[in-house]
Simulated scan of single mutants.
Amino acid sequence: MKKMICKTAFVCCLALLCLAVDVIGQDNDIKKEKFNWGRGTQDTTAGYAQAVKIDNVIYISGTVARNVNPEGIKQVYEALEKTLQHYGATFQNVVKENLYTTDMEAMKQYNQVRKAFYKGDFPAATWMQVNRLYMHDARLEIELIAYLPKK
């Protein structure tokens, strides 16, 4: 029984070693295209990028509003729309939306503002109510992942 366990462990270790050698041998240089509104794309003082594009996927950082009301929600989606437009994308390219709010009931009440931007083509979405966001006075934060068709 011990020999069988040792042999199985050896085979597993050998398989992992082969996998590691294969991964190390690949070209793992990730080409990131970063974007920040109002700052050069090489500016690192903010500590984050508004968006990062890798291949044909765009990752958009959380965009915030101070109020969960129609104006605040519209403001967030308009800012997200500008970032999408920078890459030639629209909300129809969005495949994932993460929404964080300190007032879920207000967000549900004014969801029609959000729906107008998607025009019926809704992404996978996760909505969470949180106690607080990074900016102490922010009440809503939304991040997106968008996919651009390969040319």
Rank of each mutant, 00 (worst) to 15 (best):
C13N: 08
N69P: 07
Q109H: 13
K34S: 03
E141L: 04
R139H: 14
K119D: 12
V11F: 14
I58D: 08
V95W: 03
Q75M: 11
G47V: 02
V130T: 13
L133A: 07
V113P: 00
P70S: 03
V130P: 08
P70Q: 05
M107F: 14
A51F: 00
Q50F: 00
A49P: 01
V21N: 04
N56T: 05
C13S: 13
E71T: 10
A116L: 10
G38D: 10
M135P: 06
M135H: 13
V52S: 05
G38N: 13
Q75R: 14
Y59F: 11
L84F: 06
I54H: 11
R39L: 11
D43E: 07
T83M: 12
V21P: 01
N36A: 04
T101C: 05
K96I: 01
G25V: 00
Q112F: 15
K150E: 08
T8R: 06
E141G: 10
Q92N: 06
Q42I: 03
Y118N: 00
I142S: 14
Y77M: 09
E81V: 03
G40E: 12
K7Q: 09
K74T: 08
A15P: 01
G38C: 11
H86A: 07
L148G: 01
Q112D: 15
W37M: 09
A49G: 00
G88E: 12
G38V: 08
V23F: 13
V130F: 05
W127T: 10
A138K: 06
D121M: 05
G47S: 02
A46Q: 11
I24M: 11
M135Q: 14
Q26Y: 02
G40K: 07
K32I: 04
K7R: 13
Q92A: 08
Y87S: 09
E97C: 05
M1A: 14
F117S: 02
A106M: 06
M135L: 15
T63P: 00
K31G: 00
A125K: 08
K32C: 03
I58A: 15
V64Y: 01
A46C: 06
Y134L: 14
K151S: 04
S61H: 11
I24F: 14
A49Y: 14
L14F: 15
T83L: 05
V57S: 11
L148I: 13
G88Y: 10
K31V: 09
R39D: 03
V64K: 01
I24T: 07
